[in-house]
Amino acid sequence: MALLHRAELRPSKLDLLATWLPGRDWFAGTAGADVTRVGTYRFDDPAGEVGIETMLVRVGDGPVLQVPLTYRGAPLAGADRWLVGTTEHSVLGPRWVYDACGDPVYPPALAAALAGAGQAEEYFEVDGRREVRPPTMTVTVGRADGVEPPVVGAIREVVDGDRILIRTDPVELVVLRRPTPTDALSGAGLTGSWPGQETPLMLAYAVPR
C-alpha cells in the first residue's frame, strides 16, 4: 500500500514534466503546451523509502505518454542521466525525482506487479484512520499460458526509447512510453484503462531471456 500526504510540491510534478519531456527523444506533443494528467498508478517499495508512481500525461493535443517516476529523499548516486528534477514537498522536504526506468527499485517493483501484485492501493492517514483514495485508472495483469511469473536479477542494461528496455539476467522488461493496443502475450503483461479509454492498452511486459 502507498501512503500519500496531503501536501504541496514546488515545482509541481506536471511543471517538472513540462520542462523535462520535450528533451526526450521519444517525446510527442507541443513543447511549451500544458501538460495534463490522464491517470496514475503506483507500486510498493518494500523498504518504504522510495515513492514509485507512473503518470500518464498528455502534452497539448499529443498522444498519451507514460512516465514512471521515483521520488527520493536524497540524490541517487550515478543516476544523473535519469534525473527529472527536484521539488520541495511541504511535508517531506526536498525530493529528487527520477525517471524510474533508471532507478534500481523500479524493475523489481514492476516484476512484482507483473507477477500478480498489480498496482498499490493508495491511502491517506486521517486522524489515525486509513482513508483509501480511489484509483484514477485500472491496471490489469495477464500472462500467456505456461509462463512463469517474472523475477528480475541483476540489471545489465537500460536502453531508452519509445519502448524502454530493461535487461536483467532472467527476463527483459519493456515499458511503453506510448501505451498501445494489446498484442497476443508471449510473456507477462500489464494493461491499463481510464475514463475515455475503456479498451485496455499495453503499458509494460516481460519476456524471458
Rank of each mutant, 00 (worst) to 15 (best):
A18F: 00
Y205D: 00
V50H: 02
T40P: 01
V105S: 09
V50Q: 02
D45A: 04
S186P: 02
L185S: 12
V139E: 02
L114S: 01
A111Q: 08
Y41H: 14
G78C: 09
P150G: 11
V147P: 13
E49W: 09
L173W: 04
D183R: 15
E148S: 11
G196I: 14
D44F: 04
E172N: 05
G62N: 04
T87E: 03
A188F: 03
G39N: 08
L14G: 10
L76V: 07
T70L: 02
E198A: 09
L4E: 15
D162V: 01
L56C: 00
H5Q: 15
W26Q: 13
P208T: 10
K13Y: 02
A28I: 00
A204T: 09
L65M: 14
L16D: 01
L21W: 08
P68R: 08
D34H: 13
A79W: 15
V132P: 12
A206I: 11
A47E: 15
D160Y: 14
A2Y: 10
R178Q: 13
M1H: 14
D15Y: 02
D127Q: 11
T191E: 06
T199Q: 15
P75E: 07
H89R: 15
V152A: 02
A7Y: 07
A111F: 04
E88T: 06
W194L: 05
S186F: 08
R42M: 02
E122F: 08
T199L: 07
V171M: 04
V57K: 06
V139G: 03
R95D: 01
G161S: 01
G192W: 13
D80N: 07
R58I: 06
G39T: 13
W194C: 06
H5C: 10
G161T: 07
A115K: 13
Q66P: 12
T182V: 05
M1Y: 09
R167T: 13
C101D: 10
G142W: 02
T191C: 03
R209C: 01
V59M: 06
Y106L: 13
A111G: 02
W96Q: 02
W194Y: 14
A113L: 12
E53H: 10
F27R: 10
M1E: 10
V64M: 08
R81I: 00
G102V: 09
E131N: 00
E172L: 04
Y106P: 07
G153S: 11
P22A: 06
E53Y: 10
A206T: 08
V91W: 12
D80F: 04
G85R: 12
A154H: 13
L165F: 08
V35P: 08
G73E: 13
R209E: 07
W96S: 00
A7H: 14
T199V: 15
G39F: 15
M137C: 15
P149I: 05
G93Y: 11
E157A: 13
P75N: 07
G93K: 10
D25K: 15
V126T: 04
G146V: 06
Y123V: 10
P179E: 04
R143Y: 01
R10L: 12
P22E: 00
A77D: 12
A184P: 03
E157D: 11
A112C: 09
E53W: 02
A31I: 00
D34K: 15
P68A: 02
V91D: 13
A109N: 01
E122H: 02
D127I: 10
V207W: 07
A120N: 10
G128F: 07
G128Q: 06
